[in-house]
């Protein structure tokens, strides 16, 4: 073996060792557990709080509204479609009020006439002409039980 190689070999060995040690510390524990990524990041994503808490959770405190909603044609809707996500409201209902949208624009998001909406799926009215003598839809329709009319 040429002498210059003999002196270079230890240097090479040292470099490989440094590389291995650095690699050990730079690569996170869970990297490569399932694939070319950090498996722990899945747990981090899974730990995020859920914002929509679901109908069942609202029902615990608002059983009259929930019973009413389930009794009529809006039974397929969750509370949070209209009222927005309820996670903060659940913790402190007095401080974190939810919105109560009953305007023409809001109901119109589902019910306004549009040729792309199938009448077999959703009943539609023209929000610009349907009973415009009252400002809002909820002046007549009860949002929870839609055919319970105010007069």
């Amino acid at each position: 073996m040429p002498p210059q190689l003999k002196t270079l070999l230890p240097v090479l060995a040292v470099f490989i060792c440094i590389f291995l040690v650095a690699r050990h510390f730079l690569i996170p524990d869970s990297f490569g557990k399932y694939g070319h990524y950090r498996a722990n990041s899945m747990d981090e994503i899974a730990a995020l709080p859920a914002h929509h808490i679901g109908k069942a959770a609202c029902m615990d405190c608002h059983d009259t509204e929930a019973a009413k909603l389930n009794s009529d044609l809006h039974s397929g809707l969750t509370c949070e479609v209209c009222h927005g996500p309820g996670w903060q409201h659940m913790d402190d209902p007095e401080k974190n009020k939810l919105s109560k949208p009953g305007t023409r624009e809001f109901c119109g998001k589902c019910h306004d006439m549009n040729p792309a909406r199938r009448t077999s799926v959703i009943h539609q009215i023209d929000i610009k002409t349907h009973n415009i003598d009252r400002a809002n839809c909820i002046d007549c329709h009860n949002p929870h039980a839609v055919w319970e009319m105010k007069d």
Partner: peptide, 23 residues
């Protein structure tokens, strides 16, 4: 989109599936 991975792991439906009024 994470398919609401945090919700799936808690046994909840992803938010967009939950709120869809027509299924």
């Amino acid at each position: 989109c994470t398919l609401c991975y945090h919700r799936l792991k808690k046994g909840l439906n992803p938010a967009c599936f939950d709120v869809c009024p027509t299924g």
